[in-house]
């Protein structure tokens, strides 16, 4: 299943936030979206998953979601959004509870997904007992449990320290290699974008428009070893972003 954004425009309290966005997320590929802060990246992501309604334009699903998909459009949030009163297994199970699955079926899926994300040893731990990185791993496991057609990731690594971020990036790459998921990955971190994105869309400052979409034609699994080559892409992204970021930085916040 592909995801297509057509002429999407959105206005907040009279001020346009997103204007004429056209994007394509083909199945099995990761699209990273970067842009200066306040450019509407997160709003765009909320619209992709149907949590917010655009004023104009549309988000289209092209094709049917794969067999067995429970929740085609599944989010991974910046602050993990785990229920603090539920254990790791309970948090994963939450995503399955309104799906008319039997208790045994839910338990089987939870066990399976915890095993795949190497969290089985933590199944009864409460979120407060886990580090930030482990919490995001639980959130990722929860997202995988519903077999999504497309993962919508909103700065999933921003709340983590630099070392944890590296480890999780490796995890995500490994996961993609195994599962081959489709994803829209919103970030303001260019290093993440060039490590994980098959394509990177650069948004302008508010109102957000697509300035450019660059293709990074390097297999994900090789990117950790070929950092100097990626640096070229990163520098190019920075050039595109620099003026926008500077201008955005000087604007008065009035929203």
């Amino acid at each position: 299943m592909d995801l297509r954004v057509v002429g999407l425009t959105h206005v907040y309290a009279g001020a346009p936030v997103l204007q004429d966005i056209d994007l394509e997320i083909p199945s099995g590929r990761i699209l990273c979206v970067v842009g200066p802060s306040g450019c509407g990246k997160s709003t765009l992501l909320r619209m992709l998953g149907g949590l917010e309604r655009p004023d104009a334009g549309a988000v289209l699903q092209v094709g049917e979601p794969p067999e067995g998909c429970l929740n085609p459009l599944t989010y991974i949030f910046q602050d993990f959004a785990l229920l603090p009163w539920r254990s790791v297994a309970g948090n994963v199970a939450l995503a399955l509870e309104d799906r008319r699955l039997g208790r045994a079926e839910i338990a089987r899926i939870v066990d399976d997904v915890l095993a795949r994300t190497r969290l089985s040893a933590y199944r009864d731990a409460l979120p407060r007992q886990l580090s930030g990185g482990m919490r995001q791993r639980v959130a990722i496991a929860r997202a995988l449990a519903v077999r999504p057609a497309c993962l919508l990731m909103d700065e999933p690594l921003s709340a983590l320290d630099a070392q944890t971020r590296e480890l999780l990036m490796d995890d995500l790459v490994g996961l993609w290699l195994r599962e081959g998921f489709t994803a829209c990955y919103v970030t303001h971190n260019l290093a993440e974008a060039v490590r994980l994105g098959h394509r990177v869309a650069v948004l302008s400052r508010r109102p957000g428009r697509v300035r450019e979409v660059i293709e990074i034609d390097m297999p994900l699994e090789e990117r950790a070893e070929r950092m100097p080559e990626l640096a070229v892409h990163e520098r190019r992204l920075w050039q595109l972003l620099r003026e926008e970021a500077a201008a955005a930085d000087q604007e008065l916040a009035d929203v």
């Binding site: 998953g49 949590l51 429970l70 949030f77 229920l83 939450l94 309104d98």
Partner: peptide, 23 residues
């Protein structure tokens, strides 16, 4: 964000109240 999360996983309104809002 917990409520948004519940919605994003397709939980019913009642489930969100019972499993997220009340706790």
């Amino acid at each position: 964000t917990l409520i948004r999360m519940g919605q994003s996983f397709g939980l019913s309104r009642l489930s969100i109240i019972r499993k997220i809002v009340l706790p």
